[in-house]
Nucleic acid binder design. Sequence first.
DNA 1: AGCACTGTTTACAT
DNA 2: TATGTAAACAGTGC
Length: 274
Amino acid sequence: MPELPEVETVCRRLRPFVSGKTIQDVNVRDAKIIRGHEADVWVQQLIGETMVDVERRGKFILFKLTNGYLVSHLRMEGKFFPHSEAVDPVKHTHVVFTFTDGTSLHYNDVRKFGTMELRTNDELFVTPPLSLLALEPFDPEVTAETLHARLNRMNVRAIKTALLDQSIFVGLGNIYVDETLFRARIHPTRPAASLSLTEVETVRQEAVAVLLEAIERGGSTIRSYTNPDGAAGTFQETLYVYGQTGEPCHNCGRPIEKMKLGGRGTHYCPHCQQ
DNA sequence: AGCACTGTTTACAT
DNA sequence: TATGTAAACAGTGC
C-alpha cells in the first residue's frame, strides 16, 4: 500500500490522536505482526508507556514512547485506525492498543505483511531496519553528486530498481518511481550507472517534487489505501503513467505501455522516455 | 476454476 | 558482493 506520502499522511493524522496517551493494554490477535520479541513480552514492555509523538523515517512510522520507540512498517496493506469509542475488532484487525482514556488504536492488515518492533533510543538508528536507510529525500545532503556517485558504482542495475532500493534513495515505491522517471524522461530500464550528473539531478528534483505533491494531496488511493479516517487520497487523479496503460501520454499522445521490471509492473511512455 | 496481479521488503540462490 | 527470484498473505479481476 503505502509509499512515503501515504505514510506521512498517516503520521500526521495519528500524531494529534495518540500524543500524550498512555497505553493501558495491548491485544495481539496475530503475533505474526510482532518482531523481535514474543508477543506477551512485547505487550508487557508497552503497557504503561506513554506515546509522546509520532515521527516518520522513510516508509516507517515511529511511535516515540517515554522509553524508546515502537517502529512500524505498513508494507502493502497495513492501516492504523484511531477510535474515540470502544469498537470491536474486525476480521483483519491484528493488534489493538487501548489507552487509559478509553480510546484505542486498531492495526488492520489484510495481508499481514506489516511489522511492529521495539527499539531503545540508542538502538533506533544504528540497528536494522532504520540503519539500512539512505538519508531522507528532502535532506540537503542528498545531492546529485552523492547520488550520481552511488549509482555509478552499480554494474547493470536498472535505474528504476536502484531508485526503489531504500538504501540508495528513500521514499519512492512503485507508483512514485514510475511517475518520477516519466517526468524526468528517463527510461526505467536505463542502467543506473549510465545517467549523467545532469540527469541524476533531474531525477532527484522530480522525485522530491512528486513526493511533496503527493503529500499535499494526501497520497494516492489506487485500490485499497485510505488514511486513518478511512478517506482516500487524491494524487491518483494526477498520475501520468502508473495505471495508465493504453491511455495517451500527456506529452506526445501515444499510448502508455506496461512492462515487467524486477518483478514489478512498470509504466512508461516509450516515446518520451528513451 | 485457476492464474496473474497488487502501493513492500528480505531471505536465499546464483 | 551484487543482483535476480521467491516468499510472506489475502483479495480481486480476468
